[in-house]
Design a protein around this nucleic acid. Structure first.
Lengths: 146, 146
DNA sequence: CGTACAATTGCGAATATTCGCGGAGGGAAC
DNA sequence: GTTCCCTCCGCGAATATTCGCAATTGTACG
């Protein structure tokens, strides 16, 4: 993965400092892929990079990266999970409250929402990575019957 | 506020039990209005209802009420806040990451998103009360200049 | 109205997340 | 390359949130 360069540029962009800790957290999340909890990242960092890092530093690095929109936080059923954001390929989740299944949502729909918000209010919504809860079709039918 | 009847019906609906604790938490949130933290609700319950209640019970009642879509949870800058949901009058927030200001968003825009999701996937999105982060117009212009 | 059963509460302990502080180190200016 | 300032890190403590378990209590049923 061509991460180093991207990350460096990103971190520098917001007036934030480029520190090894942030690079390590970013690298861990990029290589792990998908949604990862803080605990998972903490373990990955310790195992795969040789040296451990205090948990609080992982939290702080993630907070900073989140401000830069380099990572997104998603509330995955109680514990929060983080994912590296690929802004060129946004993706979103539909999470069913009934059965817990999760499917992806066409990003175009959310982009349309973003455009509408911008047109109506001048506000630019950050819609890189969203989780929308609701009820899937089969659960809805099951609930209607009961 | 005509709360008692509504709340009773809501609580019974999901196969959940109607307990005094849940009624008290619901009542506190309804009468307080707006977004409230757990700590605020805990204090309100103790003061205005005479008897205190363990914090963990407040958390659990809120979790249950959230499942029933009677309350919504919003991440208000680190600590989470809860609000009573009036499903007949959904409202949403645009929160600027730059200056922190917050404004309401026309619910029709989100309703359109919900309709689109339903048409495309059969999934019914719960869009009663949403917070969307982004950048307001003035902060955007300020950022562009820098 | 009494009984039985399962959901719920209260309590305290476990876990998750944030914070404050003093020292260390990034990076802009010379 | 050196200096200085200011942000950031590591650490431990403070907070916030969840969990386990025994006792309680809604609710369905007879």
């Amino acid at each position: 993965m061509s991460c180093e360069g991207e990350t460096v540029a990103l971190l520098r962009s917001g007036g934030h400092r480029l520190t090894p800790q942030r690079q390590r957290v970013a690298s861990a999340l990029q290589h792990a892929g998908g949604h990862r909890t803080v605990e998972e990242l903490h373990a990955l960092i310790a195992h795969e990079q040789g040296a451990p890092m205090p948990l609080s530093t992982v939290y702080r690095a993630l907070t900073t990266l989140k401000e830069l929109r380099a990572v997104s936080e998603i509330d995955a059923g109680g514990r929060s999970a983080f994912a590296w954001v690929d802004r060129s390929r946004p993706h979103h989740h539909l999470v069913c409250r009934g059965c817990g299944t999760e499917r992806d949502l066409d990003p175009a729909l959310l982009q349309r929402l973003g455009d509408a918000i911008r047109a109506a209010t001048g506000f630019e919504a950050f819609l890189d990575h969203f989780a929308i809860t609701g009820q899937c079709e089969s659960c809805r039918q099951g609930a209607a019957r009961a």
